[in-house]
């Protein structure tokens, strides 16, 4: 029972981290992405390969795989400079399918069987399992949430939001959309990569389907549900959407349906998300700040 709760909580923590990264891209920079699971997967596969093929320890692999994913994110963010809105949505879906196909069809990545034997990390001779691993995830989630908070209050964050609100006017204020879009994709992807690392070392075995398009939809649903551009939005979204399927266990085959229904309800009744401006929650618990 305790083990079950810990497992669910760990997965929610990981998804919250990955969704927070997506929030940088979608919420703060205003660039739609329906392919975020690709970066989640790149982080997971990077650490899997670094640990199983090169024998790196988790603690080296974690920053390295995060960095690799961030750099690939910078590269794959380039389409956002040329296309917008629905075209960008389709392009990012394409990226998701291509990345998943590479995992699936290039033998180096283990094909449909994926990669197993990803080691559980150890710290001071203790294997980090169960509550220990959950603690690790929560510490990293806290650190990245602090980072996002700090990002939002920086001049970089201000410029990113200005670009989202009005790209042409932002240009007239000295803000390069190239610079700030690529930066958002880099940060957002790196966070997805970090989440991927945590995922891989948690389940010890990964395969391409863990990072397919439905996962991207789930991540985007978490961001939209919680409130785009709100620091706590994706975390709340991850808690709600991560625990719903557990609460409604018998309905587990219908989880996509559940996400869809939750999303529709939010868009219909709370278009800014649960934590957005003017939402029910905010009216019930008004506080001065964002």
């Amino acid at each position: 029972m305790g083990g079950y709760f810990t497992t669910v909580a760990t997965m929610i923590g990981i998804y919250a981290l990955v969704a927070s990264g997506l929030n940088i891209i979608v919420g703060f920079a205003g660039q739609i992405s329906l392919g975020h699971a690709a970066f989640f997967g790149i982080g997971a596969y990077s650490t899997a390969l670094l640990c199983t093929k090169l024998g790196l320890s988790f603690w080296w692999s974690l920053p390295l795989a995060t960095l690799i994913t961030g750099l690939i994110g910078a590269l794959l963010g380039i389409p956002s400079l040329r296309v917008k809105d629905d075209f960008l949505a389709i392009t990012t879906i394409g990226i998701n399918f291509i990345v998943r196909s590479i995992f699936l069809y290039v033998p180096f990545f283990g094909g449909a069987l994926g990669i197993g034997g990803i080691p559980t990390p150890t710290l001071l001779d203790t294997r980090l399992r169960g509550e220990y691993y959950l603690t690790l995830v929560l510490v990293l989630l806290a650190l990245t949430t602090w980072f996002v908070h700090r990002f939002a209050r920086s001049w970089t964050g201000l410029a990113t939001e200005a670009m989202r609100e009005e790209e042409t006017a932002a240009g007239a204020m000295g803000i390069s959309h190239v610079r700030f879009k690529i930066l958002a994709f880099t940060i957002g992807s790196a966070m997805a990569g970090l989440g991927g690392v945590l995922y891989a070392h948690f389940v010890n075995f990964i395969s391409p389907d863990d990072f397919g398009f439905p996962v991207s939809i789930m991540l985007l649903s978490m961001v939209v549900l919680g409130g785009m551009g709100k620091i706590w939005g994706p975390i709340l979204g991850a808690i709600v959407l991560g625990s719903l399927p557990e609460v409604f266990r018998p309905l587990v085959q219908y989880r996509m349906l559940l996400y869809g229904a939750a999303l529709l309800l939010v868009i219909r009744y709370q278009p800014q998300g649960i934590l957005g401006e003017g939402s029910l929650l905010r009216r019930l618990f008004p506080r001065g700040r964002r």
């Binding site: 001049w155 201000l158 410029a159 200005a162 204020m173 000295g174 803000i175 390069s176 610079r179 700030f180």
Partner: peptide, 10 residues
Amino acid sequence: MVGLGMQRYS
């Protein structure tokens, strides 16, 4: 404020 930061963004 966005305008004030102009020298920083590069």
